[in-house]
Each structure stands twice: as structure tokens, then as C-alpha cells.
Computed example of a mutant assay.
Amino acid sequence: MIFDTFTIKSRVRPVPDFPKPGVMFRDITPLYQSPKAMRMVADSLIQRYVEAPITHIGALDARGFLLGAVLAYELNKPLILFRKAGKLPADTLSESYATEYGEAEIQIHADSLEGGERVLLLDDLIATGGTLLAAARLVHRMNAEVVEAAAIIDLPDLGGSQKLQDAGIPVFSLCAFGDND
């Protein structure tokens, strides 16, 4: 299937003033409701990483889980989950970060990585980069490496992809939305 940015972008619903006034929320629910668009997204990411030197897929809570499971299955890689605080049942490591709405915290099971692994971080969207940067800090604390941070959507005007790059983390997204999109 040929990748088509228009197909992906046309399936992302803009929701103004959510979750607070002045924020343009990019809802990917319609994308998941389109088998063609979903297959295009999954196939594009699979093709990008099929021969990449990654050992694990790190999926971010919660929408990153949807694609993370598909990629882990198709690439035959272990899936590790970065969850919101209080959601994991065993021993965890935690990392706080700033969002465009306030403060948050993510956790990972302390035994998810042993050291030396090469992790692809995956989320639905890159906004301010806080969640992905926190996940990268957790990966580094576990003596592993982040190969790349990937998402369906980048919102470059919010600066997250630049912050990731400034931290030495390569970034990939399937499409981007600017302030005027």
C-alpha cells in the first residue's frame, strides 16, 4: 500500500478548545475507524523498522499502545509499556514531566529492560515532547538506548520534536500539523 499523507491527515479530527480553551486537540479516533488508514499507518511504520537495529518496542500510555502492539507483533519484538502513575502492579521506576496542560508522571516496570537494549519509543503524537522525553530518561536509567521516537503526528509548533532532537533522540512522524492546519 502506498503511503498517502493526505489520507492520514484527513482522518485526524481537530477538536478546538479541548481539553482546555486555546488547545487544538488532534483526535486520531477516526483514523482507527478506517481500515485503509490504519493499515497505511501500521504498514508504513513496519516498513521503516523491519530491518532497524531495535530490540524492543516501547509504547506510551495510552494511544501509543494501539500501534505498539501491532509493531511488536509484526516485528517480533518485545513490547514494553510506559504507563501513567499507579497503573502498573509490580516494582516500577517513575519519571515526572511537564505537559501542555500541567504536570504528569509515567512509570515502567523495573524489570522491563536489563541493559543494552535498543528501544523504539512509539506514541500517537508529539506535542511538547514531555512524555517521550520522560520515557527516554527511564530507558537511559535502565542502561538501554533509545533508537528513535516515532509518532503518527508531529505538532512541530509546540517544540517537542526539537526538544527530542536536542536531547540526541532521532524523531520520525508520518505527518505534521502546524498552527494553520
Rank of each mutant, 00 (worst) to 15 (best):
residue 1 M to W: 02
residue 6 F to T: 15
residue 7 T to G: 01
residue 8 I to V: 15
residue 9 K to N: 05
residue 10 S to G: 01
residue 11 R to W: 01
residue 11 R to N: 15
residue 13 R to C: 01
residue 13 R to A: 06
residue 13 R to L: 12
residue 14 P to D: 13
residue 18 F to G: 06
residue 18 F to N: 12
residue 19 P to W: 03
residue 19 P to M: 12
residue 19 P to N: 13
residue 21 P to W: 07
residue 21 P to A: 11
residue 21 P to R: 11
residue 22 G to K: 08
residue 22 G to S: 14
residue 25 F to E: 04
residue 27 D to E: 13
residue 29 T to P: 08
residue 29 T to L: 13
residue 29 T to V: 03
residue 30 P to W: 02
residue 31 L to Y: 02
residue 32 Y to G: 09
residue 33 Q to L: 11
residue 36 K to A: 14
residue 37 A to Y: 07
residue 37 A to C: 12
residue 43 D to F: 07
residue 44 S to N: 14
residue 45 L to C: 10
residue 49 Y to D: 05
residue 49 Y to P: 05
residue 50 V to R: 15
residue 51 E to L: 04
residue 52 A to M: 01
residue 52 A to E: 08
residue 52 A to I: 02
residue 54 I to G: 07
residue 57 I to G: 06
residue 62 A to M: 09
residue 62 A to N: 02
residue 63 R to A: 09
residue 65 F to H: 11
residue 68 G to S: 04
residue 69 A to G: 15
residue 71 L to Q: 06
residue 72 A to K: 07
residue 73 Y to K: 13
residue 73 Y to L: 13
residue 73 Y to G: 12
residue 73 Y to T: 09
residue 73 Y to F: 13
residue 74 E to K: 13
residue 74 E to R: 15
residue 77 K to P: 04
residue 78 P to M: 09
residue 78 P to R: 12
residue 80 I to T: 09
residue 81 L to E: 02
residue 85 A to W: 02
residue 86 G to P: 07
residue 87 K to N: 07
residue 87 K to T: 10
residue 90 A to C: 04
residue 91 D to R: 05
residue 94 S to E: 12
residue 98 A to H: 14
residue 102 G to I: 00
residue 102 G to D: 08
residue 106 I to E: 03
residue 109 H to K: 00
residue 111 D to I: 04
residue 114 E to Y: 03
residue 116 G to S: 06
residue 118 R to D: 10
residue 118 R to Y: 11
residue 123 D to G: 05
residue 125 L to V: 14
residue 126 I to W: 01
residue 128 T to V: 01
residue 129 G to Q: 08
residue 130 G to Q: 09
residue 132 L to K: 05
residue 132 L to R: 01
residue 134 A to R: 05
residue 134 A to K: 05
residue 135 A to K: 04
residue 136 A to T: 02
residue 137 R to E: 12
residue 139 V to Y: 02
residue 139 V to W: 02
residue 140 H to C: 04
residue 141 R to E: 06
residue 142 M to K: 06
residue 142 M to R: 12
residue 144 A to V: 00
residue 146 V to K: 07
residue 147 V to K: 06
residue 147 V to E: 06
residue 148 E to L: 10
residue 149 A to S: 12
residue 150 A to M: 04
residue 153 I to A: 03
residue 156 P to F: 08
residue 158 L to M: 14
residue 163 K to E: 11
residue 163 K to C: 00
residue 165 Q to E: 14
residue 165 Q to A: 13
residue 167 A to F: 03
residue 168 G to E: 00
residue 172 F to I: 11
residue 174 L to C: 00
residue 177 F to P: 01
residue 178 G to N: 15
residue 180 N to V: 11
residue 181 D to P: 06
